[in-house]
Each structure stands twice: as structure tokens, then as C-alpha cells.
Amino acid sequence: MQKIKTALLSYGMSGKVFHAPFLSFHAGFELIGSWERSKKLINHDFPEVKSYATIEELLQDDVDLVVVNTPVETHYDYAKKVLLAGKHAIVEKAFTTTVAQAQELSALAKEKGLKLAVFQNRRWDSDFKTVQKIISDEVLGEIVEAEFHFDRYNPSLSPKRHKETVNSGSGILKDLGPHIIDQALCLFGLPNSVFADIRITREHSLVDDYIDIVLYYATFRVRLKAGFFVREANPAYVIHGKKGSFLKHRGDIQEDELKLGKKPNLTTWGIEPLEKEGLLHTEINGEIVKKSISTLQGNYYTFFDGVYNSIINNSLEPVTAKDGVHVMQIIEASIESSSQKKVVDL
């Protein structure tokens, strides 16, 4: 199997938890190393790889693919450097901080003949994959409304300074927001218009930590919510159709397992506990049905396998730069809507 030599732009939580385990597990990737500014941590886990002192040193090395997993406000600058150096790129969410930046990177990758993927890993969460199947199976009838939540209970400010200082990439809209925005667009496509309420709710917070976004489609609405004061979790997904409803709590275990240092595999990885099954209450062939629905297996490996195939076989990236542009369009429209207290057409 042809190897893709891959390097990370940081080895904090993102590199250690979400990227390195899958890059080292997938037979098609060779993890070369990571840029490390102060803490030199990658060799504790991967003694054979390199710790680069600068991004220039990394880009001058024999590297095919670079993962841009630095703070959001740096994504555009670093991804541009990576593409100009002739390397393929995976860029963490949020893709960029503006639509214009996202469009420029997309055009640059196309011009250079390079692959550019956005790391929207939550498409391969077990809970979302189950919701996706329920909708594709059309067991709810015509969709009337959907509501997605990415809620937490955490009144404290993050110890990560870049997350709590005012900058172009900080705030919940560009942190948790891209997950549920991308999931909505993956299921339903771009809406016609957007209305949003973006607020600060935590004491001493300088950045937005609450979002309530309504996506207007021709015949239905999708509501996206995230905040830090939800002690008792709502269902993460609530879908209502003209025949029935589906409710699913957030249950994907991959992040928790990765934080514990567990290694991914293709058989038992990403399987939720049975008690997290979703509830389907609908009408099928004239009969009212109310039952638990088994959750599909989740696996972020699928994203990396998609990136591998896109580079080796010149197929489409699993999450394209165009997808990243669309998410940024919703984010920009949400900011405008909240500031002007109006519905914004796309």
C-alpha cells in the first residue's frame, strides 16, 4: 500500500486524540512528525517521529499531507502556507474565520491540484449516522422540523487562552457550532435563510458561549443550539415528520475512548452502549410503531480512509473545501443576523 507521509501542525489535544491515533492505525499513512513550539510531547507516544521547531522546517521536509490543527484564527494563514508549499491539507474546524478565506483556500487547492479536506469528524459519530439513516429511510414522512443540540454544563472558562480571548476564531459559534451546522447541511443542504441569537452567558466570559440558530428551508425548519448551562441534557437530535418522530441522545463514545488512550480498530470501535438507543415513534404501512432503534457504529477512520483515497485515487475528499465554505456562509449569516436581529437570506 502506498504511504502518505503526514505531519501535524500541533500535538495538543487535537493532534494526540483525534489525528495521530488514526494516522498511525491506517496502513496508508506514515506519521512523520509534528511542529511543536514549546512542549515536546509527540516523541513520548511516537519515539521514531520528528519534532519540528518551525513550520518552515516541516514544510521543507519530505511530507505529502499536513494537518492544520492549530487555533481557528491561524487556519487560513497556515493552510495557505501548506498549499503554497505543494502539500495536501486537512484543516480542523472551523475551516477559516471568513467565507472569503475559505473560498480563497478552495481556489488555491484547485489551482495547485492538491487535496484540501475539512475535519468535520462528527459526520462519523454513531448518533449522527443513525439519524442520517432514519432520514434517508424516510420512515418519518415529510420532515417538518429538526433540532440539533451540542450542549454542555461547564460554567468555567477554558484554560486555553485562545478560546477565551477575543479573536477572529474564538467563541462557541466557531468551536461547537461547525459540528452541528455541518451535520445539518450534510442532511438537508444549504437553507434559504438564517436567523440567529448569539450570546454570552458565563460570568467574565469575553466570547460568545450560547448559540440558537434557525435554518429556513422551503417546507421545514432546522434549529441548532449549543451552550454551557445544560446540566440535564436534551436529546441531541429531535426530528419530527408528518408521520412520526425520532429522538436520539448524544451517545458517541469515540472522543472519550481516545482521551483514555484507547486505540481505534475496525470491528468493536465506536459502538454505543445499548441504553443510548434512539426512540422512533411513527407510522409504517398503516401501523403505529414505537420502538428503540439500534445505533449504527461510528468510526472516524472513515474520514481518514476517504482522505487517503482522495489523494491516491484522485477521488473527492470526504469533506470538501466547498463544504467548508458552506459552513462559513452559515456562520457569517448567523453573526449578521444576531447583530442586526433579522433574518438573513443566503
Rank of each mutant, 00 (worst) to 15 (best):
K115S: 03
E283V: 14
E232T: 02
G189Y: 01
G244A: 04
D182W: 05
H26D: 07
D127L: 14
G28P: 06
H149W: 12
N167T: 05
V307R: 02
D45Q: 04
V289P: 10
A321G: 03
R231L: 14
S334Y: 12
E104M: 00
K242P: 02
V91F: 03
E73V: 09
L280M: 10
V194L: 02
H88N: 11
E272L: 07
I253Y: 00
S34Y: 14
M1W: 06
I55S: 08
K291N: 08
E317K: 01
K129Y: 10
D208A: 11
L260N: 07
Q254Y: 08
R152Y: 10
Y153C: 01
A233I: 00
T282F: 01
D45L: 14
D345T: 14
E332C: 04
K5N: 12
S136Y: 07
L266S: 13
R250F: 15
N167D: 15
K225N: 07
K262L: 06
G141L: 04
E257N: 09
I134H: 01
N313T: 00
F150L: 14
K129T: 11
I198Q: 03
V230N: 15
L274N: 07
T165M: 03
L316S: 02
N121V: 13
A100H: 03
L84Y: 01
P47F: 05
R221E: 10
Y78I: 07
L157G: 06
S156R: 08
T97W: 10
F220M: 10
E287R: 12
I143Y: 05
Y216N: 13
H26Y: 10
G169I: 07
S338C: 01
L224D: 12
S156L: 03
P155R: 02
L173W: 13
G15N: 03
Q60C: 06
Y217S: 07
F25S: 11
T201N: 11
K276N: 04
L206Y: 10
L187W: 04
R37N: 12
V82W: 02
I4C: 01
V118R: 09
R250C: 11
L176Q: 09
L108H: 10
D61H: 01
S292G: 12
S334K: 05
G12L: 02
A233Q: 15
Y78G: 06
Y308L: 09
L157T: 02
S34V: 11
S170I: 09
T97P: 05
F148K: 13
E147L: 10
V319S: 15
A321R: 07
A184K: 11
L296P: 09
S24V: 12
P264V: 08
L185T: 00
E277V: 00
R199P: 08
S168W: 09
P264E: 01
T130A: 04
I253S: 00
M13A: 07
S106E: 11
A236I: 06
A53V: 09
I180T: 10
L176F: 14
K242W: 09
S168P: 05
V238I: 10
L185P: 04
V99K: 15
P155K: 03
L190W: 08
V99C: 11
K290A: 02
H240E: 12
K225G: 04
C186L: 15
T6K: 00
S315D: 00
G15K: 07
Y216V: 13
K39V: 05
A196N: 05
Y301W: 13
L8E: 05
S14N: 13
L23Q: 00
K342D: 08
